[in-house]
């Protein structure tokens, strides 16, 4: 009798433990995926960056030679500086081009359906592949490209503007066009969420439209700006295709360095550039997240 009464709570306890924690199994596929394809590769990348690289082979003897070479060579840390400069330029330009567009869609288009239609319109360039979108800029910007021909025919210039293609400028033009939509979307979304009663209240309290924008609309859209900036930053920092296609391989970003090093089987060196790039992204995202408290705003 006593054995039976002893068994029952034990059984119940075990069952409720399983019941209580069963929902964690929902995480299993995600966790397995992330460990296999994110955590392990990240750890490997850091590890490999300390391996010893010889011309045609690599072995796991630990050394800091690759790191020293990276920061000792103008070519490589120059690429880091160039990547940062290009990222900042593209970020500022996508913001300057994207914010007014988002402001128009989010605050001046009153019809929700039309808002959605306009946002989808922004995504139309994405219906073609990334490479085609990049390469399409060549016949636009080239010496005998569309822009130069039109300007010459209009008599605005006598000779072609050569700076348009195979320069840092062409890379910036290409990247801004491709990534601006990632800025427009989140900002338009935040702007559309601002309750009209706030604007009316501010108007009634005597604020001018400019003050209302500065003190109410812009601060409330800031979370959208930050999300957009994170999207753009992550994509621009990791870029290599636009840079190589539109600069004629003259503009080398960290991404390009990784591609060439991997191509020539310099794994350790590619890993160093990868770790640096990952660190830069982490710093940038952390910095952007500090600007606003996204948890509170979204």
């Amino acid at each position: 009798m006593s054995a039976v009464t002893h068994d029952i709570p034990e059984e119940a306890g075990r069952e409720s433990f399983w019941r209580r924690n069963l929902h964690f199994f929902l995480l299993a596929p995600g966790v397995a995926w992330m460990v296999l394809f994110l955590i392990v590769p990240l750890v490997m990348m850091v590890y490999v960056s300390f391996w010893t690289q010889t011309t045609f082979a690599i072995n796991s003897t630990l050394t800091t030679k690759s790191w020293a070479a990276f920061f000792g060579s103008e070519t490589y840390y120059g690429a880091l500086i160039r990547t940062l400069r290009l990222w900042l330029t593209v970020l500022v330009l996508t913001f300057l081009a994207g914010y007014p567009t988002a402001l128009f869609i989010g605050r001046f288009v009153r019809n929700k359906t039309l808002q959605t239609v306009l946002l989808v319109t922004c995504v139309i360039p994405f219906w073609t592949s990334f490479l085609i979108r990049v390469l399409a800029w060549r016949p636009m910007l080239g010496k005998e490209g569309a822009i130069n021909i039109v300007l010459e025919k209009l008599g605005l210039i006598s000779g072609p503007i050569e700076v348009l293609l195979f320069t840092e400028l062409s890379v910036i033009i290409g990247m801004v066009q491709i990534y601006v939509v990632f800025m427009v979307g989140p900002i338009a979304f935040m702007l559309a969420r601002i309750d009209d009663s706030l604007i009316e209240a501010a108007r009634d309290l005597g604020a001018t439209p400019l003050t209302i924008f500065r003190k109410i609309i812009f601060p409330l859209s800031l979370p959208g700006v930050v999300v957009g900036a994170i999207f753009v930053s992550v994509m621009v920092l990791g870029e290599f295709a636009t840079a190589s296609a539109l600069s004629g391989r003259k503009v080398n970003l960290l991404g390009n360095i990784i591609v060439t090093q991997v191509g020539s089987l310099k794994w350790a060196f590619a890993a160093v550039a990868g770790v640096v790039l990952t660190a830069v992204m982490a710093v940038v995202i952390t910095g952007l997240l500090r600007l606003v408290n996204l948890q509170r705003e979204l």
Binding site: D195, S197, L198, E200, A201, A202, D204, K215, I216, P219, L220
Partner: peptide, 14 residues
């Protein structure tokens, strides 16, 4: 010179 107190208050959340 009029004041308007809205039904939804319209307070600035930030």
């Amino acid at each position: 010179g009029l004041g308007f107190v809205q039904q939804k208050y319209g307070l600035f959340p930030h």
